[in-house]
Write a protein that binds this DNA or RNA. Sequence first.
DNA 1: TGTACATCAGTGAACGCGCGTTCACTGATGTAC
DNA 2: TGTACATCAGTGAACGCGCGTTCACTGATGTAC
Lengths: 203, 203
Amino acid sequence: MIEKKSHKERTRARIVDEAAKAMREHGSEGMGVAALMGRAGLTHGGFYAHFSDRDDLVTNAIDRMFEDSRDLLRRYLDGVDPADGLRALIDAYLSDRARRTFERGCPIAALSQEAHRLPDAARERFHSGILFFRGALRNALEAMGSHDPDALSWSLLSEMVGSLSLARAVRDEGAASEILRVSREQLKRKLGLTPSAAKLASK
Amino acid sequence: MIEKKSHKERTRARIVDEAAKAMREHGSEGMGVAALMGRAGLTHGGFYAHFSDRDDLVTNAIDRMFEDSRDLLRRYLDGVDPADGLRALIDAYLSDRARRTFERGCPIAALSQEAHRLPDAARERFHSGILFFRGALRNALEAMGSHDPDALSWSLLSEMVGSLSLARAVRDEGAASEILRVSREQLKRKLGLTPSAAKLASK
DNA sequence: TGTACATCAGTGAACGCGCGTTCACTGATGTAC
DNA sequence: TGTACATCAGTGAACGCGCGTTCACTGATGTAC
C-alpha cells in the first residue's frame, strides 16, 4: 500500500525542505519566516498552522538536514567495501562541488559553529546528528579493520568539517581547492585509503 | 617616547574589543549596536562618531580578533624549538579551557562558517587572517624539518578548527573532551610531536 | 593664574523598517444525504 | 448524481518590538589671551 500524504503534510514538508536549505546558507538566525514562506509559495500568515513557533521549525529543519546526511552516508557506505566507500565519501564531501553547494551541504559544516546558540530542542537534534554521522564513519573504519576506529572517526570528522569550513571561508578559489585537495590526500593516506596503498596491498 | 592614545582612540578601542568578544560568542549577525555600546559603557547614539556604519565595525572587529591570534602564535612559536612550540600550541588550542572560552577564542573556529556572509571588507580581512594563521603553522613545520609543510599546515589547521567546532557543538561534556583529546593525540602523532616519539628520537 | 570660548565625544529621543506572531476571514475540498 | 454544509489550509492586515541609523543637543576638556 502506498502511503499517501495529505495536502497539509506535503505543504509542511515543503516548508521544512526550504528551511533546511535556507538555514545551511544563511544560518539558523538568518532565515526569516516571511521569506521562507515565500520560497515555499505561501504567505507568512499560514506558518502557524504548521509550527508552534519559529524554534519549532528550526528543530524540524535540523532533523531534515540530517536525513540528507543519513542518505548520503548510506549511499556511500552501505553494501560496498568499506575502504572503497570511505574513499568515495571523502572525495565527495571534500569536493569543490560540495564547497559551492551550500543548500544541500553537510549541516555540521554549515552550523556547528552556531550550534551552541540554537534553541534547546534543535541543539539536541544537532547533537544526535553529529553522533550519528560519527557513528557511521566509526562503523566503516571498524569494518575495514582499522585500528582504533573510536579515535580515528572523530579525527576524520574533525578534519572533514574543518577543511570544508576553511575552504568556504577563504576568498580565493585556488586556495579553497587546495585546502580540500590537501585534506582529501592527507585523510586517505592516514586511513590507508590511497590508491597506491590499495595497489600495494593487492600485489 | 610613549605613544599616547587620545581619549577618543581609547574609547574606540574599547568598542572594538567588546565587538570582537561579542562576535565570537554570538556571531557577526548576533551582535547589536545598542547592546555593544552598553557593554562598552556608552549609549548607542555615540556609535557613529567612531564608525561609518555597522559593517565598518565588523571589519575592525575581525582585525582585532586576528591580532589576538597573532599574539597567540607569537607566544607559542617565537624563539622556541618549533616542535615544542607546535606541541604546546596544539594542546592549548584544543584544550577544554579554549572550548569553553568563546570570547577570546580563535576567530576561525568561531566565524569561518559564516565568513561567506560577512560584508566584503570584513571577509577580505578574515581571508587574510586565515592565510596568516596557516602561514605561521607552515613556517613552524618547515623549521622543524617536516616534509611538505605546505600541505601539512592546511591539514593541521583544518583538524584544529574542525575539532574545536565539533567539541563546542556537542552537548555532552564527555564527548566534547574526547573529541579534543583525540585530535590533540592524532595531530601530534601525525606531525611527529608525541612525547614518546621525541623520547625515541633523543635516545 | 584666571576667564572666555571653541571643540567635540557622548547623550537620548526619534525615524523607518523588518522581524515574529496573531487573528478574522476566504474559498477550495470532502462528506452527508 | 446533485445539493447543502462543515472543515480547515491558507490569506493578508495588523500588532508590538528591536534593529540600524540620524540628529539636535549637552557638558567636559583644552586652548587663547
